[in-house]
Design a protein around this nucleic acid. Structure first.
Lengths: 323, 323
DNA sequence: TTGTACGCGTTATCAG
DNA sequence: CTGATAACGCGTACAA
C-alpha cells in the first residue's frame, strides 16, 4: 500500500541502505545512484515513515502542549507562537486542552509519555501536582510553578501589577479595587495582586481584592458594595471588559467616574477593545524562551538551566484610564 | 532506561506476550498473573510505547489539524472543540498553524503524511490545492472546499448572510455595505456575500462590497466614499469591531446613525463586545460533525459519506442594530 | 493458560 | 561508494 524504503530500493535498483543514505544525506553516495533513488521516490510518491524512524532513533520530535484552552485569546496566541517556533526547529506539537481540570491534566501527562514526546510545555495547573517531575523528560512551565526543579517562564507580573496600580494612582484614583482570577498560590500571576497591595500600601491606600467567580456575578457585588470605587485593576482583559460592561449598565462613565486597567493585551483584545488600558504580556518572547529552555534540556543532558525567567511586559495606556 | 515490555515481564516472572495480553485485555489470562503483571508495571512505572505499537498496528490515533492560527478567536474555539472531541474518542491532535500561507500548508501536509496521521481536518486553504486528495488518507474540510471529493462542514453561511442583511433592512437601513474578508471563490464563507447581494437586490437596493486589506485601511476609505452609509454587514466580528471603532472616531453614533452586524459570535467576542449584533456560528456542532465524518471515513473504508454538511447558526441581536 | 519467533519500517554497524 | 544484518518495542500466529 504505502510504499516503503524497500519498494523504493527495488525500483531504483539499489539496496534499502542506499535509499536511507540518500534520504538522510549520510555517507558518500554516487551522483548517479542519488538521482536514481530520487526519481524512484517521486515515482512512488514515497514518504519516509517517521513512526519507524522514531522507534529506532528514540526521538519523536514531538512536544506536548498542556494549557487550559485555545479558546482563550491569551492561550490561543501563546500556543500559536509555541507551535510556530517549534515548527521552525523541526518539532511538532501535540495539543492538550486541560480545561483547568486536574484529572484531564494527569491523563494528558500519561498520554504524552506513552507517545514518547521529547518534551512538555505546560501552563495548566491547579495545585502542586508532582506528576510533572518525570525522569528524563524535559518540562517547562509557563506562568505556572510546576515544581521547584522545573524551569518557569513568565512575564514580569510583579512589575505589571505595579505599573497598573501606579497608573490608576497617577490618574488620581484613591479608591482602587483589584479583581483577581481564581487564586492559587503557585502561580506567578498572583504577583500581580501582591504588587497591587504593595503599591497601595506604599501610597497609604487600602487594598481590596475581589476574587472572580465563574459567572462574573462578583462584579455586580463589587459595585454594590463599593459605590465610591474610582479605579479597578482587573487581572485580565476579559474581566476588565465585564467591568466596563457593568459600569455602562450602571451609567458610570469611564474614564470620568471610573478608570479601568486590564492585563494580557492579546491581539484579539487590542483589536476588539482598543480603548482598554492594559499590561501587555510579551507572549511571543515567552514562547521563544520556553522553547529555548526546552530544547536546551533536550540537548544538553542535565546541564543546569535557569529555573526562572521573567520577561518584561508593556503598559499600554488607553482611554479607560483617560486624559 | 525506559522500561519496556520485556522488563515488566522479567519482574513479573512471565513472558513478554503475557504482559502484552494483560495490557490489551486479549485472550485468557490467570487472575494471579494479571495481578503480578500490574504490580510489576507500577513498580517499574511502565508506560507502553505507542510509537512501537503504532508501527505494528499501522494506526497512530493521530489527527492533523491545519488552520490559519489559534490566535484568532474563531479558530481558537473551533480547535479547542476539535481537540476535545477527538480526545474523548481516543485520538490525539497534531496542531498546524498555516497562517494562510500555501507553502506552509503544503509542508504541513507532507509532515502529517510522514507522521502517519490517521486523518486530517483542515480549514486553511488559499487556492485549489489538490494536494489534499491523498489516497487512503481521510480528510475533512471546515468552511473550505478542498476538493470535490472531500467532505466539507460549515455553518449555513447563506442563511447567515441573509439574516444579517435582512436585520439591517428591517431596522430601516437602505444604504447597506458589506465588508468581506479576502476573497477566494472556494470558500463557503463567500456565500455570506452572495446572500447579502441577493437580499439587497430582492429589496431593490444596490449591493456594495468592500474587500478587507491587511491593515483595515479600507474601512476609512469606505466611510469617506460613503458618508451616507446606514448599515454595515461585516463578514466577521473583528472587522465589525474595527468598523465600530472607526465610526466612533468619526462621531457617527451606533445604532442611531449606523447599524452594524458582524459574524462568528465566538465566546471571546461575545464577552468583549456583547453589544455587537452578530451571526453566531455553531462552532461546537461543526467540530462534532467534522470529527464524526473523519472517523467514519477511517472506519468504514470507502463507504460513501455526505459531501456537504451545513449547520444553522444563530442570529444574535445586540445594541449595534439598536432599539 | 503461557511462551517463541517473526515482522512492522527505519537506521547504525560493519564488511566489501 | 554500496550492501547485508541486527536492533528499536510491541503484537500476533503458532506451538507448547
Amino acid at each position: 500500500m504505502k510504499p516503503k524504503i524497500e519498494d523504493v530500493a527495488k525500483v531504483a535498483g539499489v539496496s534499502p541502505t542506499t535509499v536511507s543514505r540518500v534520504l538522510n544525506n549520510r555517507g558518500y553516495i554516487g551522483e548517479k545512484t542519488r538521482k536514481k533513488v530520487h526519481k524512484a521516490m517521486e515515482q512512488l510518491n514515497y514518504f519516509p515513515n517517521e513512526v519507524a524512524r522514531s522507534l529506532f532513533i528514540k526521538k519523536t520530535f514531538l512536544i506536548g502542549l498542556i494549557f487550559p484552552t485555545t479558546s482563550n485569546p491569551f492561550y490561543g496566541q501563546l500556543i500559536f507562537h509555541l507551535e510556530n517556533i517549534a515548527a521552525s526547529q523541526g518539532y511538532k506539537v501535540l495539543l492538550c486542552n486541560s480545561q483547568g481540570r486536574e484529572d484531564k491534566e494527569k491523563n494528558y501527562l500519561k498520554m504524552l509519555q506513552r507517545n514518547q514526546v521529547d518534551g512538555i510545555i505546560a501552563g495548566a495547573h491547579n495545585k502542586g501536582i508532582e506528576e510533572y517531575e518525570i525522569p528524563n523528560l524535559p518540562v517547562v512551565g509557563v506562568d505556572r510553578y510546576l515544581s521547584n526543579k522545573i524551569p518557569v517562564v513568565s512575564s514580569d507580573n510583579y512589575l505589571g501589577g505595579k505599573q497598573a496600580t501606579q497608573l490608576l494612582i497617577d490618574k488620581g484614583c484613591k479608591n482602587i479595587i483589584h479583581i483577581n482570577g481564581p487564586i492559587s498560590l503557585e502561580t506567578p500571576a498572583n504577583l500581580r495582586r501582591k504588587a497591587y497591595e504593595d503599591v497601595m500600601r506604599a501610597n497609604q491606600l487600602t487594598p481590596l481584592t475581589y476574587e472572580i467567580d465563574d459567572h462574573f456575578t462578583i462584579i455586580k457585588q463589587l459595585f454594590e458594595e463599593n459605590p465610591q470605587v474610582e479605579g479597578i485593576f482587573a487581572s485580565d482583559d476579559l474581566i476588565a471588559s465585564r467591568v466596563m460592561r457593568e459600569a455602562k449598565d450602571r451609567n458610570i462613565n469611564i474614564p470620568t467616574d471610573l478608570k479601568v486597567v486590564g492585563y494580557d493585551g492579546t491581539e484579539t483584545t487590542r483589536l476588539l477593545l482598543p480603548e482598554l488600558s492594559t499590561v501587555q504580556q510579551p507572549i511571543k518572547e515567552i514562547a521563544e524562551k520556553a522553547i529555548e529552555l526546552l530544547v536546551k534540556q533536550m540537548d544538553d543532558k542535565d546541564d543546569d538551566i535557569q529555573l526562572e525567567t521573567i520577561l518584561p511586559g508593556k503598559l499600554i495606556e488607553g482611554e479607560t484610564t483617560g486624559d
